[in-house]
Design a protein around this nucleic acid. Sequence first.
DNA 1: TTGAAAGCGCTAACAA
DNA 2: TTGTTAGCGCTTTCAA
Lengths: 342, 342
Amino acid sequence: MKNEDARRAATLADVAERAGVSAKTVSRVVNEHPSVRDTTRERVKAVIAETGFQLNLAARSLAASQSYLIGTFVADTASLYYSELARGAARACRALGYHLVTEEFDQRNPVAADHYERTLRQTRCDGMILPPPLCDDLALLDALERDGVRYVRISPMLDPDRSVAVFAHDADGVSQLARHLWEKGHRRFGVINGPSNFASSATRRDALIAAVCALGGSASDVTASKMLWDGTFPATGYRTAAQLLKDAPDISAIFTFNDELALGVLGYAHENGLRVPKDLAVAGFDDSDASSFAWPSLTTVSQPIVDMAVRAVQALVRDSPHARRRIECPVRLVIRASTGGE
Amino acid sequence: MKNEDARRAATLADVAERAGVSAKTVSRVVNEHPSVRDTTRERVKAVIAETGFQLNLAARSLAASQSYLIGTFVADTASLYYSELARGAARACRALGYHLVTEEFDQRNPVAADHYERTLRQTRCDGMILPPPLCDDLALLDALERDGVRYVRISPMLDPDRSVAVFAHDADGVSQLARHLWEKGHRRFGVINGPSNFASSATRRDALIAAVCALGGSASDVTASKMLWDGTFPATGYRTAAQLLKDAPDISAIFTFNDELALGVLGYAHENGLRVPKDLAVAGFDDSDASSFAWPSLTTVSQPIVDMAVRAVQALVRDSPHARRRIECPVRLVIRASTGGE
DNA sequence: TTGAAAGCGCTAACAA
DNA sequence: TTGTTAGCGCTTTCAA
């Protein structure tokens, strides 16, 4: 697949000749090196504008041994999460002169390190963004470190100080939610946990318990249930809600690990004559499309995924290679009809 | 951002030396050129495995004047569509030895051609995938052709024969849907159109009318309304449904351009005491998450977006530069509760 | 502030 | 079947 009839693109040398300077000077102008006389710079810039010259990324990469590429993964499962992540990452890359390379990650065949070595490695990415659950794939981290490829992890669970890591301030959002529910008069709470390989699953449950205690309740007011997986999140939410309400019938509010689980809880309520939010308040997490489309619309906590991706790319490009910091991004409680918000 | 402490990666020359052959021979092995003696090939492959050698993409691009990069855009608006597209494209790229570069596309500042020239151009992508609405940006197409960059368009509206174009067979899905509704006894239909800059908006409406006529009805049995935009799709669906049912109170089934509009219709039905599907059947399009999470779950037409992206990449890599064909991908009617499916 | 020369790691074109 | 040579279009390093 060669694009035969491409008009040969202008090169540095072409621009140099037309501007009557050396190629190196053009390079200095393009890279905004300060030591170029203003008049020279203007002349070169004029020729660049005229010719539409753009650096050849491959040549630059080769010479500078920097690829100006940031890599990331999309999971092989439909999710708004990854589309937001890509959006934020692409936006930040563009602002910093980088490009975003996306690779598909196969959840069922989780030898991510192998996948990396056989494909992404040849791009010599300058950095990688690792969303969950890849951020906790230790073999992948080892492989990246071996190649000297830096990485930033999004919401990692394991060994959070091993690298720069970006977190949403989940606990804060959950505690806002607890306060909201408490003010609406709720005293007994149900929690449907998420997958155990997501750090945030335990974090969110614990944050709810802590918040309820801080408001004057006790840990025994919160009944947590792990997911009874049933194929999809909504189906799982449905099934787990049934169990939860059987185990603790006095629960008046259910908080779920994500919005999709909450949709299942809503479905359960509908089918069993529980009015939402009168008989049962329901709250999710993520502020995905699902939450605003739900009936009634779902109270949820909005994760700033786009921002998190932007921060990740910035850290990749600007931090020193051995930086190991925690970047915490604020979340936002979105109150909707399912908890009696207006 | 240089990864200073990267162990210097093995090069072709390193492998050549260790295997006792010329660099060119190693190149032939890596590129699966047939004219290498089996014994030589094995020896070289062994050294490659041993050293973990991987071609340097930048060097290869420069020498071969091919980037092995495919470019695409994510819109700056959350949508499963783009995440599925990226997924399919990444999968196909990987299979063919290419990499996927993603750029954010700003809907509000739609000078896509300019955007391309200032950023993606430096990657010298071998090909581009253009989803709607970019596929109909004539200035962008001109710019790509000027640079000799080939492109494949997904569901273009304008000038469909200008390039290879991939389509979902919308009309077929709509006609299956019409038959299903007809069999359920519906005779008067409402249609909520999509944005007028999407070709499929008119296609789907017309397909419904044609299908109804084919079933023995007439064009006047279908009342179409353009969207009364209200900030989001669900809100728009709500508002448009209200208008539609006022204009044509005898409608018993509403078909919308996408699932999100249908969610608004469902909300309208709930708030106005219309039982779904008893009083009003509702059907959407796309089979997005929204449709299975809706209450009741939504009958919809499933677009094979992942497949479409795969086909697009394959066409990019394998077709001749001047190919101009139409690739039609089959859709699938998904019958759920909102039309009385079981 | 500017330029000249060398070379990044690969492939194309040719020769053996 | 294999090897040699000469670049691809930049940046680096060093010199002017």
